[in-house]
Amino acid sequence: MANFEEQLTALESVVEKLERGDLSLDDSVHLFEEGLKLSNACKKELEAAEGRIQVLVEQGRNAMRVVDLDEEKDAKAV
């Protein structure tokens, strides 16, 4: 799967094509659907990064460590 930067670049390209307004309705709808998928994928990546940052902040300055979010959820469930 593409990384965040690649997805964001693809989303920007979709937006540029849609803003030109020279596409057929079918092509515009197809690109809009593609843009929504890319937007949702970017949002998911950003939310995951935000979660990791929140975990780091909660760990405190003296005991900072990176914790995988799945690992963190498993620890809270126990």
Score class of each variant (00 low, 15 high):
36 L>Y: 02
51 G>S: 05
64 M>I: 07
19 E>M: 14
22 D>Q: 13
8 L>M: 13
53 I>Y: 04
31 L>I: 00
55 V>K: 04
31 L>E: 01
23 L>F: 06
10 A>C: 09
41 A>I: 04
46 L>P: 01
3 N>S: 03
63 A>W: 05
59 Q>F: 05
70 D>S: 15
11 L>C: 01
70 D>Y: 12
18 L>D: 04
38 L>F: 00
6 E>P: 02
4 F>Y: 15
24 S>F: 02
60 G>V: 04
75 A>N: 12
46 L>F: 11
13 S>W: 07
46 L>E: 13
31 L>Q: 07
41 A>R: 11
47 E>Q: 07
50 E>D: 06
72 E>H: 14
45 E>W: 07
31 L>P: 02
38 L>T: 02
64 M>K: 15
29 V>K: 12
9 T>P: 00
59 Q>D: 06
23 L>N: 08
17 K>S: 05
16 E>P: 00
55 V>W: 00
4 F>V: 07
68 D>H: 12
27 D>R: 04
34 E>A: 07
42 C>R: 00
78 V>E: 14
10 A>F: 08
39 S>V: 00
44 K>G: 04
4 F>M: 03
61 R>Y: 14
8 L>S: 07
14 V>I: 06
62 N>M: 11
5 E>R: 04
14 V>P: 03
22 D>F: 08
25 L>F: 12
12 E>W: 00
53 I>G: 09
67 V>L: 11
70 D>N: 09
14 V>G: 02
53 I>L: 15
27 D>I: 03
21 G>R: 02
37 K>V: 06
57 V>E: 12
56 L>W: 00
66 V>A: 15
35 G>L: 01
1 M>G: 15
2 A>L: 08
8 L>W: 12
12 E>A: 08
66 V>N: 07
39 S>I: 00
6 E>T: 05
35 G>W: 02
30 H>M: 10
46 L>Q: 15
70 D>M: 10
5 E>H: 01
74 D>Q: 13
27 D>T: 02
77 A>Y: 11
14 V>K: 02
5 E>L: 03
50 E>P: 00
62 N>T: 12
12 E>S: 11
8 L>N: 10
12 E>I: 01
69 L>C: 06
39 S>C: 02
59 Q>M: 13
65 R>I: 11
35 G>S: 09
3 N>P: 03
29 V>T: 13
56 L>V: 10
38 L>E: 01
53 I>A: 10
67 V>P: 01
24 S>R: 06
21 G>I: 05
7 Q>Y: 12
33 E>H: 05
52 R>A: 07
40 N>Y: 09
9 T>V: 14
19 E>H: 05
51 G>M: 06
1 M>W: 10
8 L>C: 01
51 G>E: 09
38 L>P: 03
44 K>F: 04
63 A>K: 13
74 D>F: 11
72 E>W: 14
54 Q>M: 08
7 Q>D: 15
38 L>Y: 03
65 R>H: 15
59 Q>N: 15
39 S>T: 01
4 F>K: 11
9 T>L: 10
38 L>S: 00
54 Q>D: 09
71 E>L: 10
43 K>M: 05
65 R>Q: 13
3 N>C: 05
31 L>G: 04
40 N>S: 10
38 L>G: 03
24 S>D: 05
22 D>M: 04
71 E>R: 06
64 M>S: 09
20 R>V: 08
